[in-house]
Design a protein around this nucleic acid. Structure first.
Length: 494
RNA sequence: GUCCCCAUCGUCUAGCGGUCUAGGACACCGCCCUUUCAAGGCGGUAACACGGGUUCGAGUCCCGUUGGGGGCACCA
């Protein structure tokens, strides 16, 4: 599968559904791997047992699969560096911690959470900048440590940041050079008192073990990077390349959250967006091959993606543009494809049609496809567009349609004329109907607007509908004629 | 508070010192097409946050200001 050492990973924590931001991170990683003949590994960072669930894990992998992102290693597919769930790697973390302890690169800390919080609170109260952990337990004697451990005092493990460590320089692939002073770093906790590892530690252990070469992740991790570099160095592992991509914001410029509407991939899937369109939109949020391209098919993305064209700016999620792209994908389908993959399934889902042999009703579905395709934003919209076909011979007619379509002067004459003209029709195709109806308004001396308006109201129960001739053809002769009668009845009652 | 990141039309972006009177796309507005609604065609409004440098020349480089965002947890 690979012919070089490019290995990237996406490591979601299953504490919620897959968010738009996470989805884009996954897309960039996947595309980078594919464009460079590298490997894309999926790892589940589930070290937060309080919030991680099996269900979320499933939702996340489903969402990735829905978007067409396949992983070369990870849950479900295995791989040479597994296991790919952190909860299954606990022994490994313990082993690394023991090794660090033995080599004097980490040490037990007996400070309690209360003590640490008090120090933070004190700094805040005195308006002093919080200096971080003051390395209280760094130089405890061997005797004292063993004594306190034997006394069952709880302790965490902290990493020993070298006091004379030079500046940490990150040559970020999207930001360029970023320099952090090692003095900003305190001896952070790598293992909690319950023996579980912390994020900044286990993510590095895993990335090193899994030979990850490029870490592509959100900007929110840029500040964590120097800490992680310290861990790489303690491990004696090579530091990978980093690429920090910008955050995705809501329409108000604030971090994307619930109040911005749909924020999880699952919601877009449920709303009926095309996975390719969704992928396309997200890929272009922060990545722009040339400033002109708006449609990027999955395979093109997989061939041309490059970190060099990734923007540093935070991006605002724009549902309108997503809609536009989705529409592009929909209208690029042939009528037949649209009929098969959108119209039929949606009507069946809505309970309006039975799942029957598509071929048996092919011509009917083709007409439906032709008239709905340019009018659909997302797939389920076809149901609303076609619903009038399923309301029987005496449908309820919208109040507005009665008032404007049926109550006008020539409405009755129009309906009677249409009845007259179409009653004797021998075939029932849109073309036939159209030619039959076309001369009518002039013949009876009403405007097109009045004539077709009345007809539309009678046939569809609304002033807004797909093209009339096609709609009438779809309705069938009997149903259409019955509706004309019904409309005439309704008019008498007004 | 402190450290770090970011700054071109309302939005996504092109731009990597002269070709920028700043280009494309979405959205918006207008016109055309039209029996409704769409779709489509044509056109339009609209941006280099501010202030200093550097340079013959700055959207493009440097510094500062302002404004956003993120980290500083026994969350990830």
């Amino acid at each position: 599968m690979t012919n070089n050492n490019i290995r990237v990973r996406f490591a979601p924590s299953p504490t919620g559904k897959l968010h738009i931001g996470g989805a884009r991170t996954a897309i960039f990683n996947w595309a980078f791997a594919r464009a460079n003949q590298g490997n894309f590994v999926l790892r589940i960072d589930d070290t937060d047992p309080e919030r991680s669930t099996k269900e979320n894990e499933r939702i996340i992998t489903d969402a990735l699969s829905w978007m067409g992102l396949d992983w070369d290693e990870g849950p479900g597919v295995g791989g040479p560096y597994g296991p790919y769930k952190q909860m299954e790697r606990m022994e490994r973390y313990q082993q690394v911690v023991n090794d660090l302890l033995k080599r004097g690169l980490a040490y037990p800390c007996f400070c309690t959470q209360e003590e640490l919080e008090a120090a933070r609170a004190k700094a805040k109260a005195e308006k002093n900048p919080y200096q971080g952990y003051q390395r209280t337990c760094r130089e405890l004697s061997h005797e004292e440590v063993t004594k306190r451990i034997q006394a069952h005092e709880p302790y965490t493990i902290r990493i020993k940041v070298p006091l004379d460590h030079p500046d940490i320089v990150i040559d970020d692939l999207v930001h360029g050079r970023v320099v952090f002073s090692a003095k900003e770093l305190d001896d952070f906790i790598i293992m909690r008192s319950d023996g579980t590892p912390t994020y900044n530690f286990c993510t590095v252990v895993d990335d090193a073990d899994m030979k990850i070469s490029h870490i592509i992740r959100g900007d929110d991790h840029l500040s964590n990077t120097p800490r992680q570099v310290i861990v790489y160095e303690a491990l004696g592992a090579p530091v990978p390349a980093f690429a920090h991509i910008s955050m995705i914001l809501g329409e108000d410029g604030k971090k994307l959250s619930k109040r911005h509407g749909a924020t999880s991939v699952e919601e877009y899937q449920l709303e009926g967006y095309e996975p390719d369109a969704f992928l396309n939109y997200l890929a272009l949020l922060g990545w722009s091959p040339d400033g002109e391209t708006t449609i990027v098919p999955r395979d093109v993305l997989a061939h041309t993606f490059s970190l060099a064209h990734v923007s540093k700016n935070p991006a605002t999620f724009d549902p309108k543009k997503l809609d536009w792209i989705n529409k592009q994908y929909l209208s690029n389908m042939s009528d037949e494809e649209f009929a098969k993959t959108v119209v039929e399934p949606e009507l069946v889902k809505a309970g309006l049609e039975k799942r029957a042999d598509f071929e048996k009703n092919a011509s009917r579905y083709l007409i439906m496809a032709a008239i709905t395709k340019p009018r659909v934003r997302v797939a389920p919209d076809v149901v609303g567009l076609l619903h009038f076909l399923y309301t029987g011979p005496t449908p309820s007619i919208e109040e507005k349609a009665i008032r404007k379509g049926l109550a006008s002067g020539g409405a009755e004459a129009s309906l009677l004329e249409a009845l007259e003209v179409l009653r004797g029709a021998t075939s029932w195709t849109p073309e036939e109907i159209d030619t039959a109806l076309h001369p009518c308004p002039e013949r009876i001396g009403v405007s097109n607007k009045v004539f077709f308006g009345a007809l539309r109201a009678a046939a569809t129960g609304s002033l807004v509908s797909p093209p009339l001739a096609e709609s009438i053809a779809l309705l069938g002769k009997d149903l259409f004629l019955a509706r004309l009668d019904h409309a005439l009845d309704v008019m008498k009652c007004v």
